Computed example of a mutant assay.
Amino acid sequence: MIRVLVVDDHPIVRAGIVGLLDTESDVEVVGEAASGEEAVSLATELEPAVVLMDLRMPGIGGVEATGRIVRLDGPRVLVFTTYEDDDQILAAIEAGASGYLVKAAPAEELAAGVRAVAAGQTVLAPSIAAQLVARASTPRKAAPELTPREHEILALVAAGLSNPAIAERLFIGESTVKTHLIHVFEKLNVGDRTRAVTRAMELGILN
């Protein structure tokens, strides 16, 4: 079962999200939080696999709460919000969120996103990915040069494949995949897979 903590300051919205997830046989909602502080506290106490995080809440917001939860080195954060502002998106991803979905998404997209994030994959709503691509089309500094293999692996990460799946697809060892990704992180000056993908989109390396 995928243990999920739902974070949203609107009780009705929160109840609706819980109701949707409760219909999934492989998902268990283990807690609900109405603020960033409560989210951090419950994430520490309940050790969920995925924290479904709203952004704008009283007290510390979703971005700061995301950063604190990611530093627990256990739960992964999937932002689920109505906001599609560029700065909010990048701030959440830079804080360590593993994905970003909007509340207008179909129910099946939410469930699929939870499963993907729990499996270590990156999830971006199509509208969010489109914004990052548009942002990438603005004037920018020269992008760092990736090797063909690094680009190939990063593209597969963007497609949602895990390291083992990439290794199997390319007929290489998982350790080799990790080594290439370390080089990609260094070139893009990022610290994780999600930010590598969004940074590559910003720079026009991926589209």
Score class of each variant (00 low, 15 high):
Ile153Tyr: 12
Leu46Cys: 05
Pro106Leu: 09
Asp87Thr: 15
Val77Gln: 03
Gly31Trp: 02
Glu37Cys: 09
Ile153Arg: 09
Val117Trp: 03
Pro144Leu: 10
Ser137Met: 14
Leu55Cys: 09
Gly99Met: 04
Gly36Pro: 02
Ala119Val: 01
Gly74Pro: 06
Pro139Asp: 08
Arg76Met: 09
Gln131Thr: 12
Thr82Tyr: 04
Glu45Leu: 13
Gly113Ala: 07
Val70Ala: 10
Lys141Pro: 10
Ala33Cys: 07
Val50His: 06
Val40Glu: 06
Arg71Trp: 01
Gln121Asp: 00
Gln88Lys: 08
Leu72Asp: 08
Gly19Ala: 13
Ala34Trp: 00
Ala97Trp: 02
Ile60Leu: 10
Ala34Phe: 00
Gly31Glu: 06
Gly36Glu: 03
Val70Ile: 15
Ser162Gly: 10
Ala104Asp: 13
Ala104Lys: 07
Gly160Glu: 11
Ile17Trp: 04
Leu156Trp: 11
Leu52Val: 07
Gln121Ser: 12
Leu52Gln: 06
Arg71Lys: 15
Ser25Gly: 01
Asp85Glu: 15
Val117Lys: 03
Gly113Leu: 01
Val30Phe: 05
Ala97Lys: 02
Gly99Ile: 05
Val63Tyr: 04
Gly59Trp: 06
Ser41Arg: 15
Leu132Ala: 04
Thr147Asn: 07
Ala95Asp: 06
Leu52Lys: 06
Ala33Leu: 05
Val133Ile: 14
Asp22Cys: 08
Leu161Cys: 00
Arg76Tyr: 08
Ala43Arg: 01
Ala49Met: 11
Ala112Gly: 13
Gly62Glu: 05
Ala105Leu: 00
Val157Trp: 08
Val29Asn: 03
Thr81Trp: 08
Val123His: 08
Ala136Val: 03
Thr138Trp: 14
Glu108Thr: 12
Met57Val: 05
Met53Thr: 06
Met53Ile: 03
Ser41Pro: 00
Ser41Met: 12
Val123Met: 09
Val79Phe: 02
Glu24Phe: 08
Thr82Glu: 08
Arg135Asn: 13
Val102Thr: 13
Ala49Tyr: 04
Leu132Asp: 06
Leu110Phe: 02
Ala43Gly: 11
Leu124Asn: 04
Ser41Thr: 13
Glu64Gln: 14
Gly113Tyr: 03
Glu109Phe: 01
Ser25Ile: 01
Asp85Trp: 01
Lys103Glu: 00
Thr66Ala: 11
Ala111Ser: 11
Val40Arg: 03
Ala142Ile: 09
Ala39Gly: 02
Val123Ile: 11
Glu32Asn: 01
Ala155Phe: 06
Ala143Ile: 09
Met57Arg: 04
Ala134Glu: 12
Thr66Asp: 07
Asp85Tyr: 07
Phe80His: 09
Ala105Ser: 14
Val40His: 03
Ala116Arg: 14
Glu94His: 13
Thr23Phe: 11
Ala119Met: 00
Gly62Cys: 07
Arg115Lys: 07
Tyr83Cys: 00
Arg140Val: 12
Arg149Gln: 15
Glu24Cys: 13
Ser137Tyr: 10
Leu161Met: 12
Val29Gln: 04
Arg68Lys: 14
Leu55Lys: 08
Ser35Met: 01
Arg149Thr: 15
Ala116Cys: 04
Val18Gln: 12
Gln131Arg: 15
Gly99His: 05
Thr82Trp: 04
Ala107Arg: 05
Val114Ser: 05
